[in-house]
Simulated assay, not measured.
Amino acid sequence: MYNREKGKVETLMSKKIFTDKEIEILSKNKYVKSVSIKGITYSDEFKRIFIAENENGKLPREIFEECGLYVEILGNERINSSGKRWRATYRKNGVCGLQDTRKENSGRPSEKELSIEEKYDRLKAQNNLLKAENELLKKVEMLERGLIKKKKK
Rank of each mutant, 00 (worst) to 15 (best):
N54H: 15
E53W: 05
F50A: 09
E65V: 12
W86K: 09
K16W: 01
K38G: 05
I79F: 09
R91G: 00
E77G: 11
P60I: 09
I37G: 08
L69G: 04
K92Y: 04
F46I: 08
G83F: 04
D44R: 01
K33Y: 05
Y42P: 04
K38Y: 13
N54T: 06
C67S: 15
E65H: 00
V71Q: 08
N76I: 10
N54K: 14
G97S: 06
L59S: 02
E45W: 03
S14H: 03
Y70G: 00
K21D: 11
R87W: 11
P60V: 05
R78H: 14
G75F: 04
Y42V: 15
T19K: 00
E24L: 10
K47D: 09
L69E: 03
M13Q: 14
K16P: 03
I51G: 08
S27M: 14
G39I: 00
E72G: 11
V35K: 03
I23A: 00
V95R: 14
I73F: 11
K16R: 15
K16E: 00
W86V: 00
G75A: 11
Y42R: 10
I79W: 07
T11P: 00
I17L: 13
G94C: 03
E72Q: 10
I63F: 07
Y31S: 12
L12S: 00
K38Q: 11
K84W: 06
I49K: 12
R61Y: 12
F64G: 01
S43H: 09
L26A: 06
S36H: 00
D20C: 04
Y42S: 01
G57I: 12
I37L: 02
L26Q: 04
N29M: 12
S34W: 00
G83V: 09
S43C: 05
K58Y: 07
E22S: 10
L26Y: 13
E53Q: 13
S14E: 11
G75P: 02
D44P: 00
I73E: 05
E10V: 01
G39E: 15
S14T: 14
L74E: 02
K92R: 14
I17N: 06
S81Q: 10
Y42E: 08
G39P: 00
K15C: 05
I51C: 06
A88C: 06
E45V: 11
M13T: 10
K33H: 06
E65W: 03
N29Q: 09
K33D: 01
C96G: 14
S43K: 06
S27G: 11
K30S: 12
K58W: 10
G39S: 14
